[in-house]
Design a protein around this nucleic acid. Sequence first.
DNA 1: TAAGATTAGTGAGTACAACTCACTACAAGT
DNA 2: ACTTGTAGTGAGTTGTACTCACTAATCTTA
Lengths: 235, 235
Amino acid sequence: MSRGGARKIVRLGREQRVAEILHAARDLFCEKGYEAAAVAEIAARLGIVEGTIYKYFESKRELLLKVLEHWYEEMFGDYERDLAAVAGARQRLRLLIWRHLRTVREYPLLCRLMFREVRAEQDYRGTAVYAKNRRYTQFLVDVLKEGVEAGEFRDDIPLPLLRDMVYGGIEHHAWNYICGRGDLDVDRIAGQIVLVVCDGVALRPVAADLGRETQRLSQIVDRMERGLSPRAEST
Amino acid sequence: MSRGGARKIVRLGREQRVAEILHAARDLFCEKGYEAAAVAEIAARLGIVEGTIYKYFESKRELLLKVLEHWYEEMFGDYERDLAAVAGARQRLRLLIWRHLRTVREYPLLCRLMFREVRAEQDYRGTAVYAKNRRYTQFLVDVLKEGVEAGEFRDDIPLPLLRDMVYGGIEHHAWNYICGRGDLDVDRIAGQIVLVVCDGVALRPVAADLGRETQRLSQIVDRMERGLSPRAEST
DNA sequence: TAAGATTAGTGAGTACAACTCACTACAAGT
DNA sequence: ACTTGTAGTGAGTTGTACTCACTAATCTTA
C-alpha cells in the first residue's frame, strides 16, 4: 500500500505454494463462510494476486473441496487404532459416536462447511470428499454389522438407516453449537444416543420390572424348594 | 425481441403481482436451485423487469423465505385433523413420521431449498420460516411427551434429541431421493424408524425369553401354593 | 371531464466477485 | 550468455444482486 507497486515478487515451488493457499483458504472459509470469503482476499493474505490461485486450483469450489479432503486425511490417522482398543458392539458404537461428537465440538466451522457447502451440492457424489466421508461413516455400519453377527443386535433394521439416524441426528442436534450458540456436552449426548439406538436394536433389552419380577419369583421358588412357606418373610 | 421495445405495460394490483412473483420464484428456485436462479429470469418469465421484483421484495433471500413460508402455510391445514383421528403414542408417532416422509416424497425440491438454503443460513433463527418449522416439529415432541406421561415411553431421554434423530435421520436418509436419485419407500422407512425409536424408548420391550421365564416361574409358584410338588409335571 | 395525486413499472446504471489470459520476470540447464 | 520452463501478474470480461431517478397507468376529486 505505502510503496506504490515496488513489491518484491516471491517465487515458491508448486508444493509449497499449494500448501500455503490451502492453509489460508481454510482459515478464511472458517472465518467468513464459503460465500462471503473472496478468493482475492485469500490471495491478499499471502501477498499474491488472485490469478495465482487459479493457476493451482480450477475454481473456488475445488479449493474448498481440497481443504476438506486434507481435513479428512488428518482425521483418519488414529481412527482404526482407537477402535481396535475397544471390544463389544455397544462399546465400539459408543466410541464412534463419542468421537464424532468430539470432532464436531473441536471443528465446528469445518463441519459447517462440510454440511452446508459440500454435502448439499449437486456434484457431491463424485468428489473425493464424498469417498472419504463414506469411508468415515462406514466404520459405524461395520460396527453395527459386527453386532448383528455377534447376536448382540437384531437383524431386521437396515444398517444404513441406523447410520443416517445417528449422523443426521447429531448434525441436527449440534447445529446450534455449530452456528456458535451454546455448548455441546459430548459425553452426555453420546450416552443418550447409544441408549436410543441400542435399546432399539439390542436383542435383549433391560426390561427392569420384568427382570425384578423374575428375580422375586425365583427367590420364592428357591425358598419353597427348601420347604419354607412362600409368605414366611413378607410383613 | 421481434418488436423493438413496443411492449404494452400491464399494471397489476399489489396482491396479485406479489402472488405472481412468488409463484414464478417457486418454480424457478425448484428448477435451478437458489444460487443459479437469477432474479432477472423470474422477472422475464412474468414479462416484467428486475426492478419491479425489488419493489415488492427487499432481496432475493426474502423472496426465497416468503416462498417457503407459503408452503408451510399450505401444509399446516390438515395436520391437526389427521392427528386427532389416531390414538396411542406409538401410532401417533408413526403418523407424524409417515406424513413427514410423504411430504419429502411429494416436494423434494422445496425440501431441498429448505434444508440447503434456508435452515443453514446465519439468520435462520429470527425468520418466520424458523417459527413455522418449530411449530411443525413440535407436533412430534408433543406426541412423545404424551407417550411419556401415559407411561408408554421412558422418561430418561431428552425429547429434543429424539426429535433430531427422527428429522435428521429422515433428512440424511432421503437426501439421495431429494437430489433426484432413486426412490423413497415411505411406508417401509416409516415402520423402521418407529421400530428404532420406540423399542428404544418404550417402557416394556418384548424381552420374549425373560417373559417366558417369568411365566414359567409363575406357574411353579401357583402349583406350589396349591400344594403340588414343583417338579410334578417336569419330565 | 380535466387536473392532480398515487403508485406500478422501467431501464440504465453501480458494485462486486469469480474467473481468464496475454504477458513478465525469475531460475535452472546447457 | 542464451534458452526454456514456469511462477506470478494485473488488467480485463462476465454475470448477477441490487439501486434509483424517472415514466406512465390508474384513481381521486373538483
